[in-house]
């Protein structure tokens, strides 16, 4: 048998369809540059140390700031009540101040601090990711 393959019968009355191949157009592999930067960290070069150092400093500094707010906002309360015992008798909305502060207000404050920390910490990490995957000009 020399005929055409049965699944593609020729139709002489119609021009044959030209198959358009999809051509992949790409630039040079983009992986090279980021790989070079992560390689600096992997090889623990001076530059890699700088990258890592900046991330560590940024995250630690953020943590220290949050803890400082915690120390001032919550940690200073015992000292304040020690120095001004009169505060114990102060009433706000019909309830004594210590109970409002220690029993209620502290918890939203802690959650708010935590929420702000998580947002900032994730942004720091995103910055680090951007830095390492930036294509050099």
């Amino acid at each position: 048998m020399t005929g055409p393959p049965p699944d593609r019968p020729e139709r002489p009355d119609r021009p044959e369809r030209v198959r358009v191949e999809r051509v992949r157009v790409t630039g040079p592999p983009r992986r090279r540059t980021p790989a070079a930067r992560t390689r600096d960290i992997d090889a623990e070069t001076r530059l890699g140390e700088v990258y890592m150092g900046s991330l560590l400093r940024e995250q630690l500094w953020l943590a220290v700031r949050v803890l400082a707010v915690l120390a001032v906002g919550v940690g200073s309360l015992p000292l304040a009540f020690h120095l001004w015992p009169g505060l114990t008798g102060v009433r706000l909305l019909g309830a004594p101040l210590p109970w409002l502060l220690l029993g209620v207000a502290v918890y939203p404050f802690l959650v708010l601090l935590g929420w702000r920390y998580v947002r900032r910490a994730e942004r720091n990490e995103q910055d680090f990711l951007d830095l390492l995957s930036e294509v050099d000009g």
């Binding site: 949050v66 803890l67 502290v106 918890y107 802690l110 935590g114 920390y117 998580v118």
Partner: peptide, 9 residues
């Protein structure tokens, strides 16, 4: 509770 904040950061 605050222990978890310290743990978090």
């Amino acid at each position: 509770t605050a222990g978890y904040l310290v743990l978090l950061v």
